[in-house]
């Protein structure tokens, strides 16, 4: 199964990409270290959320059972998971040099899925704010609004980055520079999907259990 020399985490371009494959080593490793650092931020926000459960932190305000919508969480999960797959298809097409269109089409689909995800998430938040369940209501809601929108902000940053990359593909084609950036954006995107596993499990599913 050693199809190609692995130089860094995530999908490798492979030696048939020449210099870009060599340059990828330090760049992608560096980005990977950054993601691990970011993971600590998320981990601490998760831990803060866990410590801010219960009547004391809810301060008489609404709790998970009154606020969370399982159906919406399920849709958001599917959207993100599918976008991970479509990004993977784009990465594979890039690695196997299938041309520009097979890379761009799944990327556009990924962007669409990402934006739809954000739409659902914002809709959920709006519903909560309309019930008076904003971060100003209780410590528990502060922890919720510190954690889940943090992931949403990351997805927003990912979408902006993806738009910039689509523009760069239009300007430069699949140049080495563009390919190296897409590799890192791919890592970012898959990483956010892993964070989402934590969010739907710890926040939504555990919150709605029992």
């Amino acid at each position: 199964m050693t199809q190609f020399e692995r130089k860094h985490p995530g999908l490798n371009l492979g030696s048939h990409h020449g210099a870009a494959h060599d340059q990828a080593e330090a760049l992608v490793f560096g980005f990977w270290v950054f993601l691990m650092s970011d993971l600590i931020i998320f981990g601490l926000m998760f831990a803060t959320y866990i410590t801010m459960q219960g009547p004391m932190a809810e301060a008489g305000g609404p709790g998970p059972a009154q606020l969370y919508d399982l159906r919406s969480a399920w849709i958001q999960t599917l959207l993100l998971l599918t976008s991970s797959l479509t990004f993977g298809l784009a990465s594979l097409a890039m690695r196997h040099k299938h041309g520009v269109a097979p890379v761009v089409v799944p990327l556009v689909v990924t962007l669409g899925l990402g934006l739809t995800f954000l739409g659902f998430e914002l809709h959920d938040f709006q519903g909560m704010l309309a019930q008076g369940a904003g971060p100003g209501r209780s410590g528990f809601l502060s922890a919720f609004f510190g954690l889940v929108p943090l992931h949403g902000l990351h997805v927003t940053a990912g979408c902006i980055w993806l738009m910039v990359m689509l523009a760069q593909i239009a300007v430069f084609g699949l140049s080495d520079m563009v390919k190296l950036r897409l590799l890192r954006l791919g890592l970012f995107w898959h990483f956010l999907d892993i964070i989402w596993i934590g969010i739907f499990s710890i926040v939504y599913l555990a919150g709605l259990t029992g």
């Binding site: 199964m1 050693t2 020399e5 692995r6 130089k7 860094h8 985490p9 995530g10 999908l11 490798n12 490793f29 990977w32 270290v33 691990m36 991970s84 993977g88 890592l187 898959h190 990483f191 999907d193 892993i194 596993i197 934590g198 499990s201 710890i202």
Partner: peptide, 27 residues
């Protein structure tokens, strides 16, 4: 959830127990 995290690492991020580039796994 824990299994799914491993699945994502294995199939989407291509982190496995192969001998190459162990520093990613160490990290």
């Amino acid at each position: 959830a824990l299994i799914q995290v491993v699945v994502h690492f294995r199939f989407f991020l291509h982190i496995d127990l192969s001998q190459q580039k162990r520093e990613d796994l160490h990290l």
